[in-house]
Write a protein that binds this DNA or RNA. Structure first.
Lengths: 163, 163
DNA sequence: TTCCATTTGCAAATGGATTGCAGCACCGGG
DNA sequence: CCCGGTGCTGCAATCCATTTGCAAATGGAA
C-alpha cells in the first residue's frame, strides 16, 4: 500500500480469462449473452494493450457489428467492472480487460510518436490519494495517471514517425 | 526530487504575473500583441483554476472574440509554455497560466459531481518517471495525473448535484 | 506611412461519442 | 419446444469539442 509495487512485473499482460469465464460474468450480472458482446470480449481478451472502440471494431472480423453497439457495450462492460477505461489524452477512450477481482489498476507509458504502449505496473499515487482524501474530505477517490515520451525507435528514426 | 514536496502548500494559486509581464513574454517570442490574446491572458491571470475554452470565451466581456481564435491562441500559448493544458477526462481541455520559469507542474483533485477543483501541489510520479525512462529507453518523458472523488458538500447533498 | 506575415472572424468540416427508434434476439416460464 | 417481454442491435440523425479554409483586418518593422 505504501510500496512502489512490483519492479519488474509482467512485461506483458497475458490472456488469463477464457471467453467462457467472461461470458459467465455476464450471466452472473443478468446480462444477455449476445454475439456482439462475446465478439468484443474476445477481441479484448487477445490484446495486451488498451484498444479504442474503432480498433475493436476493426479487429472484429466477420463478427462485425455496429460501432454504436460497441460504444454502448463498452459502457455496460465498464459499469460491470469487466473493462477499465483509459484516457491517453488524444480524445479517444481506450479499454482493457480487467483481470479478475483483485486486479490492481496500472498505468501506461505511451510513445508520443508511434503510440507504442508499455504497461506500467508501478503505482505510487494511491498513497497520495489517501492523504488527499483525508485532507479535503473527499470520498470515492480515484486517480488517473499516464506517462508519455519518445520511444527508442522513434528517437532513432527522427521525429518522422507520426506527423 | 524524491520527496512528497510541500505538504500544505498554497491552497490557492494566486495571480502572480501582471498583464504587462505576460505581454512581454509574447513580445520576447516574436508574437504579436493582439487584443484577443491579451484578453485571454487577462482572464487566465485572474482565475486560480483551469478553464475550458468555452469558459474563457464566456469570461471575456466586451473583449469578446471568436471561439476559434481562442482555440488557436491556446495552442500558441501552450507551445510557448505560457499555459499548461490539463485533461480531466470529460472531453474538454482546460488551461491554466504557468507561473514563471520554474513553476513545478501540479495536479488536481476534481469533484465528480460539482466539478469543484482543488489544486494539488504534491507530485510523486516524477521519480517513477525517471525510473521508467531509464528502464525503457524513453526520452522526453512526462506524465499527467489527476485525482477524482466526491467532495464533502456533494456527499452531504446526495448525488443530486450534477446529473 | 507602407508592406507583409501573422491573426482574426466566420462558416463549414471533422471526428468521437450519444441517442431515438423500430425491429430482432436472448432466455425464463409455460 | 414454443412464447412473450425485456434487453439489444443496426441505422441514421445529432451533439459537441475542436479544427480548418479563406478573405479581410491588423501588428509592427522598414
Amino acid at each position: 500500500m505504501n510500496k512502489p509495487c512490483a519492479q519488474h512485473a509482467h512485461p506483458h499482460r497475458l490472456v488469463q480469462q477464457s471467453l467462457t469465464e467472461l461470458t459467465d460474468k455476464l450471466r452472473a450480472r443478468d446480462r444477455k449473452i449476445t454475439a456482439p458482446r462475446q465478439a468484443v470480449l474476445d477481441v479484448l481478451r487477445r490484446h495486451a494493450h488498451p484498444l479504442t472502440n474503432r480498433e475493436i471494431h476493426a479487429a472484429l472480423g466477420k463478427a462485425d457489428c455496429d460501432l454504436a453497439t460497441i460504444y454502448r457495450n463498452m459502457h455496460t462492460l465498464e459499469s460491470m467492472g469487466l473493462v477499465k477505461r483509459y484516457d491517453f489524452g488524444d480524445g479517444t477512450a481506450r479499454f482493457e480487460l480487467v483481470q479478475g477481482e483483485g486486479d490492481p489498476h496500472h498505468h501506461h507509458l505511451v510513445c508520443r510518436h508511434c503510440h507504442t504502449i508499455i504497461e506500467v505496473e508501478d503505482c505510487f499515487p494511491t498513497e497520495l490519494e489517501q492523504r488527499l482524501a483525508a485532507r479535503h474530505g473527499f470520498t470515492e477517490v480515484s486517480h488517473q495517471l499516464e506517462f508519455f515520451g519518445v520511444c527508442p525507435r522513434c528517437r532513432r528514426d527522427g521525429a518522422a514517425s507520426v506527423p
